[in-house]
Amino acid sequence: MAKPALLPTTLAAALVAAFLAPAASAALPANGTASWCYSHLFTFGDSLIDTGNFIHYSTAPGPVARSPYGETFFHRPTGRWSDGRLIVDFIVERLGFPHWPPYLAGKSKDDFRHGANFAVASGTALNQLLFKKKHLNVAQITPYSLGVQIGWFKKVLAVLASTEQERKVIMAKSLFIVGEFGGNDYLHPLFQNKTLEWVRPLVPRVVRSIARSVEALIELGATTVYVPGLFPVGCVPRLLFLLRDDVSGGGCGGERDPATGCLRGFNEGLAVPHNRLLGDMLAQLRAAHPGVTIAYADYYGEVLRLVSAPALGGFDAGAGDSLRACCGGGGLYNANFTVLCTEPGAVQCADPSKYLWWDGLHMTEAAYRIMARGILHGPFADPPILSRCNG
């Protein structure tokens, strides 16, 4: 399978464009917000955009409830799996909305006046029951899968609007972001010693689940839906640490890409097919719903470009630094599983803004800022989210 590639000049131009995208557009209202473009923002996903749902239901939320999580922007743990803001936070700010509470923290209609975030850490596209049937330990897999999150949204919609006409108006004026999904569907089994060959057959089921959820939103009246693809899972520091001794591949995906240091099998044999199939299914949905904007957000391309050329984003560019976690348990990639970021003995970098990866699984605020710009302004989403604000 061919390795996704860009010419160096194209790579540099795309990265610089995302990194240097303007903080405000001349086409926006005088108050500097874009809230007139979308009345609400509704998001579904996992820990990449979970702003606190996990810690509101979990009796043992673990490291995310302790420092140094949240230190960069909020200066305290908020339930975000990063040192600061997430992609969704930058989008919320750019649209002129306040940092609304996560769904499980909402108490009234007023809490959802700008939308809601239904994402839950460890969230999957497939439901927990499927993993149980496959004899996996589901202790680390939330029961709040994509299907459950769609159910939560329907409850919020009923709270916000009492008539069908009111609901249609809200749906038509709202922005929906469905994902990223798939990462946990694949990583949970891999972290339980399943092989790449075991995981690959899940791809069509995962993508179908995402497509069904997008179609469910469209049937409710959604007109603007963004669906991020899978990031390059082969670049995840914890997975790299897990397979640190598998240098030959051996059918397990351990072969390193000489250009990035990432695991080629997991990128080219898992993430790329996932994204290709997702793109095909979204194309089918576009054909079936010509009046609806269904846009693909290229998380794979964004993250791979940052890994390939970290200096262009302002990150440390030393050998292996783009794959090293800022806060972790030491060892190769600073991604030793046995010591978590918040525990005694953890190794923390001096400046998270110079690192792509925060704790070996999640990224830093600095990385999320660039990713958010890439889908707000382009070039990693077509059309960019803010394109609706320029008319």
Rank of each mutant, 00 (worst) to 15 (best):
F231K: 04
P258M: 05
F42N: 10
N334P: 00
K154V: 00
F266S: 03
A309G: 14
K173H: 14
L217Y: 01
P379W: 13
I49E: 10
S39Q: 14
L202F: 15
N53R: 11
Y38N: 14
H135I: 00
C252E: 03
H377T: 00
P204A: 12
H188Q: 10
W100K: 01
D321T: 09
L7S: 15
H188R: 02
S47D: 00
C341V: 06
S82M: 08
G182S: 09
T10C: 12
I218P: 01
S58H: 03
V272T: 06
E93K: 14
P384K: 07
M371F: 09
S387F: 06
H289L: 04
A30D: 12
P68K: 08
N390I: 15
G70V: 01
A60E: 12
L340A: 12
L323G: 13
F191D: 02
F54D: 01
L304G: 06
G79P: 01
P98R: 10
K134S: 01
G96L: 13
A27K: 11
R388Y: 06
K168L: 13
Y144N: 15
L160N: 01
W100I: 07
L282G: 09
A297H: 02
D316Q: 04
P63L: 05
R85K: 12
H274M: 07
A158E: 04
R373V: 00
I375H: 07
C326L: 06
L386P: 13
D359W: 01
L361H: 06
A317S: 15
A139C: 13
S47P: 00
L11E: 15
L129W: 07
I87D: 08
A367C: 11
P29H: 07
S353E: 10
K132A: 10
E302N: 08
K173T: 12
M171S: 05
A2G: 03
P237D: 15
H135S: 09
S108L: 12
P290V: 01
L104Q: 13
A211K: 04
W36A: 13
W100V: 02
G360V: 08
M171H: 10
G301L: 08
F44V: 08
G314Q: 11
G221L: 05
A12M: 05
A13M: 12
P232V: 01
E255S: 08
A116C: 06
R369C: 09
A287P: 02
R212Y: 04
S67N: 07
P77Q: 00
A2E: 11
P61I: 04
S82Q: 08
A161T: 06
G183W: 12
N31E: 13
G183Y: 12
A259G: 05
G301T: 07
L386I: 12
R369W: 15
V16R: 04
V159C: 05
V169E: 14
H188T: 07
D89P: 15
A317E: 14
L356W: 10
C341Q: 07
D83F: 03
F380H: 07
E302V: 14
L129V: 03
Y226N: 06
L323C: 08
Y69L: 01
E180W: 06
G291M: 00
W100H: 09
R238I: 00
H114N: 11
C252D: 01
I91K: 03
L376K: 13
G329C: 08
A211P: 14
N184I: 04
P273V: 00
L306T: 09
V206T: 13
S82G: 07
A319H: 13
V236K: 02
L340D: 14
L15S: 14
H99G: 04
F73E: 05
V214L: 15
L356F: 11
D257L: 10
P68D: 05
